[in-house]
Design a binder for these strands. Structure first.
Length: 430
RNA sequence: GUUGGGGUGACCGAGCGGUAAGGUGCACGCCUGCUAAGCGUGUUGGCGAAAGCCUUGAUGGGUUCAACCCCCAUCCCCAACGCCA
């Protein structure tokens, strides 16, 4: 876990304003000032320690040159022992201050882009554009649960019995549809120059600590406990494909010529959804386990704007080809992730709910993650800078299935397979 | 899992108690009529205007005035054997 206090000095106003615009409640009053203050103290202590270390090195050098006879070796040794004790004390002090500063630093959100609309929740999100006509139907649309159960394609009840709520069995041709959606979206995005990746589905705690807030451990992540007798460590199931993919780059220096790195991952994701009691409890809309494809980009700061738009347009292209009505919204300050400078959501129209529902999120996290994970590149002046990271959903498989079931069912409950998927499913209807 | 061998900068690669060779790549500067050439400087991180100081050898400890080097623990990689979808 890496942290960068000077950054706080340099971005004081922006950070303070960002906290306010996001309606966040800080753990202490004026956290930004406190970090700056701690930073000053730490620097001073470090200087002391460096000075003392220097003294030790000087003596040590004398020993190494046999020419200069060291007089009273014992005295020198004693002196150094004492010096080392002092150093240890100072270092303990530094460690304490650092821990406090780190805690606050980890809490800090990213600064917000000026263009982001202000507002405390998603009702303040601003619609940017819409695609597709919402068709009139002369029969009643069945929601995916009813349709899925009747056609023996989805079984959540049995899943509830064996694991609990918010899990599912997918059956029959819906399985091929799910896999077709994975293949389709990976292929589509790979065509745009993104390298496909299947990541590990678990991460060590220390690794996860860098990516996510401690709070999310409790609320979002499932823990896999290691065997005690072998001392095997605990791991956490990933809550999004992006985490293991980004983590792979922690503490690395990327050659400038390798940027941008564009990746498209596929994996399941596991979420506790602790804050979502009562929301979307039925069916496969909000799940503890789901599948997704996801775009991840590492780039230079000056390219992030462009690539943010690119990731969004990659996915809009898919929804257009799937021919499902959707809209794009610019997320308001209170609705976006704390890592984000700027966030777009894409929402598909669900006929069964007569509403647009989220099916993708596109995050420009600037260097927020890179700063914490220490991911840099050398620019052409030779100095190291933090990369920018971006992530954007490809397709959330289960939600996309819902959208397709809603859009493509006929009055008999037969679901047509969208044209672009047929080459992956091998059949035209379900 | 067992035994053995290893982990050094963006990358490759030496040294094996006295304070990180060399090469490739990259950046900056120079040189060349042209040229896939050549020369110089820089390239772990921190503080500093700079000089400089500190730091860094998978990770964490220990021994020592001094550790990449010795000792202990952990992680990872490779080979062989075992186990296994």
């Amino acid at each position: 876990m890496h942290y960068d206090l000077n950054y706080v000095n340099e971005n004081k106003e922006e950070l303070v304003s960002s906290i306010k615009r996001r309606f966040l409640i800080p753990p202490i009053k004026n956290p930004v000032d406190k970090i700056i203050e701690l930073n000053e103290t730490i620097k001073k202590l470090r200087k002391d320690v460096d000075e003392m270390r220097h003294q030790r090195n000087v003596v040590s050098m004398k020993f190494s040159k046999q020419k200069e006879k060291v007089e009273s070796k014992e005295m020198e040794r004693m002196k150094i022992r004492k010096l080392m004790d002092d150093i240890k004390n100072r270092e303990n002090e530094i460690a304490l201050k650092e821990e406090a500063a780190k805690k606050l630093f980890l809490w800090l959100p990213n600064v917000i882009s000026k263009e982001t609309p202000d507002g405390k929740d998603d009702t303040y999100n601003v619609e940017i554009r819409k695609f597709g006509k919402i068709a009139k139907r002369n029969f009643e649309i069945k929601n995916h649960i009813d349709l899925g159960e009747r056609r023996d394609l989805i079984d959540v009840e049995s899943a509830a019995r064996v694991v609990g709520s918010r899990f599912f069995y997918l059956k029959g041709r819906l399985v091929q549809l799910a896999l077709a959606l994975e293949m389709y979206s990976i292929s589509k995005i790979a065509e745009k120059g993104y390298t496909p990746v299947i990541p590990p589905f678990m991460l060590k705690k220390e690794v996860y600590g860098g990516i996510a807030h401690m709070a999310t451990f409790e609320d979002a992540l499932y823990k896999v406990t290691g065997l005690e007798d072998t001392g095997e460590e605990d791991r956490f199931l990933i809550s999004t494909t992006e985490h293991p993919i980004i983590a792979r780059y922690a503490d690395t220096n990327i050659s400038e010529k390798d940027l941008p790195i564009k990746l498209v991952g596929v994996s399941p994701a596991f979420r506790k959804e602790a804050g979502a009691h009562g929301k979307d409890t039925k069916g496969i809309f909000r799940l503890h386990q789901f599948d997704q494809t996801e775009q991840i980009v590492f780039c230079k700061p000056e390219d992030s704007r462009k690539l943010h738009e690119e990731m969004l347009s990659n996915v809009e292209e898919m929804w257009k080809e799937l021919d499902v009505p959707y809209r794009v919204v610019d997320c308001s300050t209170g609705d976006m992730g704390i890592r984000d400078v700027h966030q777009y959501d894409i929402e598909a129209y669900l006929y069964s709910q007569e509403k647009y529902r989220e099916v993708g999120s596109f995050d420009d996290t600037s260097d927020w993650i890179a700063r914490r994970l220490n991911i840099r590149y050398a620019n052409n002046q030779g100095n190291k800078k933090y990369v920018n990271t971006l992530d954007g959903t490809g397709l959330p498989i289960q939600r996309t299935i819902i959208a397709i079931m809603d859009t493509y069912q006929d009055k008999d409950g037969v679901i047509k397979v969208p044209e672009v998927l047929v080459k992956y499913t091998g059949f035209k209807e379900i």
